[in-house]
């Protein structure tokens, strides 16, 4: 029997070269830049020193980092709490219903994310539908301040990220061997116990992928806090964005993104340790 597959490896060379150039080199480049000093216009120049990192270790930046991490953590948590049951029920639904629900989850994905966030802006505004409704019902006397709050940012984040929890959990739950769940029930486990001792561990790869997929992007989505949080919510992404476009300090912006890169690396490392792979992240 001929085994022709070996020589094919060469076909992956263009992809490897492209990735090395645009991902490898560009990331190395900003790591290098982060040790330089801001120069004339939009350039960077020596001396080489870790002064940008020393500047990051100040209360303003640390507070922003903590705020971002807390928001990203809450986003991942709420996505799990809301998205897991949804994905689980979806996997248990009849095949025909399943296809439709899956489509309904994916379609908003295909429309512009910014427009969807803009929909929340309309909803949350002082004279918007939510306030009109609660005013009409007499629940409050004056419109509530919903827009430009941390709450609005959290709702927007969870909203934008929830498909990234639902889809990996669904694809794990769909492959679930339901006879194992039945066996647990036959052996005397009540539905809740069966769920937590059988279903949850068996869908753990989906949960982990979902947590990573919702946590990591939440740290960098500066446009969301820009639109819903106004100037009150300075997340890490906003810091990077401001340094680059307002202060035009390329080396410092590079240092801020290197910190974010290191944090991401840490999360991915933990994810890999628990047996996660990149493959589970595309569904």
């Amino acid at each position: 029997m001929k085994r022709p597959v070996h020589r094919r490896e060469a076909m992956a060379i263009p992809m490897a070269v492209y990735a090395a150039l645009f991902v490898g080199v560009s990331l190395m480049y900003i790591i290098g830049l982060s040790f330089l000093t801001r120069g004339e216009g939009f350039t960077a120049s020596p001396p080489v020193s870790p002064h940008n990192y020393e500047r990051i270790a100040s209360p303003i930046y640390l507070r922003s980092l903590l705020l971002s991490l807390r928001l990203a953590g809450l986003t991942a948590l709420f996505c799990l709490l809301i998205g897991y049951p949804f994905a689980y029920f979806m996997a248990k639904a009849r095949p025909k219903a399943r296809t439709w629900i899956l489509l309904l989850v994916i379609v908003p994905f295909w429309t512009n994310a910014l427009i969807r966030i803009y929909g929340w802006k309309i909803l949350f505004s002082a004279s918007g539908p939510i306030n009109q409704a609660i005013l009409a019902l007499g629940l409050v006397e004056r419109p509530l301040k919903l827009l430009y709050t941390d709450f609005a940012v959290l709702v927007g984040m969870v909203y934008a990220m929830i498909p990234f929890m639902v889809l990996p959990v669904y694809s794990a739950a769909e492959r679930l061997d339901w006879s194992v769940v039945e066996a647990a029930r036959d052996l005397g486990a009540n539905p809740i116990k069966a769920f937590f001792t059988v279903v949850v561990p068996m869908t753990m790869p989906g949960i982990l992928a979902g947590l990573v997929l919702t946590f990591i992007p939440s740290i960098g989505l500066f446009f969301l806090s820009d639109l819903l949080g106004g100037s009150n919510t300075m997340l890490w992404g906003n810091m990077v964005h401001n340094e680059l476009l307002k202060s035009r300090d390329l080396p410092f912006a590079a240092a801020l993104s290197v910190v974010l890169l290191a944090l991401t690396g840490l999360v991915i490392l933990l994810y890999r340790k628990r047996g996660g792979s990149a493959e589970t992240m595309v569904f």
């Binding site: 992809m15 990735a19 990331l27 993104s257």
Partner: peptide, 19 residues
């Protein structure tokens, strides 16, 4: 090369944007 090729969907977009 393979590791680098799949990296873009795992790291926050803002990092790649700046890079």
């Amino acid at each position: 090369g393979e590791q680098l090729a799949v990296l873009p969907i795992m790291i926050p977009e803002i990092i790649l944007g700046i890079a």
